Simulated assay, not measured.
Amino acid sequence: MIPRNKNDEREFPWWLVVAGALGAFFLYRILADDLYRQVLTTLSRGVGITLFVTAVAFTSACLIGLGLAVASLSRYRLLRELARFYTEILRGLPILVLLLYVAFVIAPGMVAAINWVLEGLGQETIRTRDFSLLWRAIVALTLGYSAFIAEVFRAGLLSVDEGQVEAAKALGLNGWHRFRFIVFPQAIRTILPPLGNDFIAMIKDSSLVSVLGVLDITQLGKVTAAGNFHYFETYNVVAFLYLTMTVTLSLLLRRLERHMRRKPG
């Protein structure tokens, strides 16, 4: 393990000054150039889709991941084995492959199963295209990231000293109360930094939903560049939008980490 440099927090962030200067210069170019402004106006419509996909998928992945982490630490072996099977299989699949698999294998299979039930009940069936590509992409990102987030939660829960759990048992707290009042409030300090990194990673990986035709920033960039043939300007704006979101979130995450280190236990 590489030791953390204690001078890192006191060093002046020259990298941030350079990055800010470049960002300000590029923003000036966008505002001063008609072509850049037009491209930015077009691509800005994809920012909402990118953030929506990321927020919904990440929230769902956190809920599933927490359930998997608790199951992996259960005293019941069946739950532990099922949780391990899920995490190992999903972590072994590239997100792009998972997107395509969910969109073109799992989604049609789900629709076929639902239609079989509906036909048995004498109800009107649904079509595969009624399951929108946007939600197929959200499901795929949720499944893929829940496996990684489960390991983050599991490590955080294991970081809590066992003596405190035993003390809570001695006080008569049941399993739910021990988790709610003793384990999770302490584990969250360990969990939040890597969880924030996963959120930033999901923002970047959300660009993969463009392969399904979802109109996020990347897909709008591809369509715009194919229409105006100004690939340099278009993908400059695409990169600028993603960097603005990820660098801003990274800075907020670092500030949160410093705050949590200074906060007394």
Rank of each mutant, 00 (worst) to 15 (best):
A150G: 01
P193Q: 07
E88I: 02
F85W: 10
R262T: 12
F153E: 01
Q123F: 15
V209H: 00
V237S: 10
F58V: 08
A168H: 05
K222I: 11
G221Q: 10
L35C: 08
G144W: 00
T42G: 09
S207K: 06
T50H: 10
G67M: 00
Q123N: 09
S132N: 09
T142C: 05
T142K: 02
R178M: 05
L171F: 07
A225Y: 05
R189P: 04
R77K: 14
L40Q: 10
H259Y: 14
T246I: 15
M245L: 15
V39W: 08
L63A: 14
T234W: 09
F25Y: 14
G144A: 00
V139K: 06
I138W: 02
R180I: 06
V165T: 03
R178V: 04
L51R: 06
Q38S: 15
I49F: 03
K222G: 02
D130R: 04
I30K: 09
F26G: 07
H259P: 04
V17G: 02
L78Y: 11
K222V: 05
A83N: 00
V165A: 05
V209I: 11
V97S: 00
R75L: 02
N5H: 12
P108K: 12
V223F: 04
R84N: 12
A150R: 01
L40G: 11
R180S: 08
A239E: 06
A32L: 10
V238Y: 09
E11W: 13
Y242P: 08
V56D: 05
F12G: 03
L43V: 11
A61F: 03
I182D: 01
F184G: 04
P264N: 13
V53L: 14
L99K: 01
W135M: 07
I89V: 12
I30V: 15
K263Y: 13
G48D: 04
L251N: 08
R154E: 01
R180V: 04
W15T: 12
L16K: 07
S250Q: 15
E81V: 11
A147P: 02
Q38L: 15
I200W: 06
L253M: 12
L252W: 04
A55H: 09
L63Q: 07
W176H: 12
I95D: 01
Y242E: 07
L252D: 04
T248Y: 11
I138E: 02
P264C: 09
R189H: 10
L93C: 00
A21K: 01
R80G: 03
G67P: 06
A187I: 01
R189M: 10
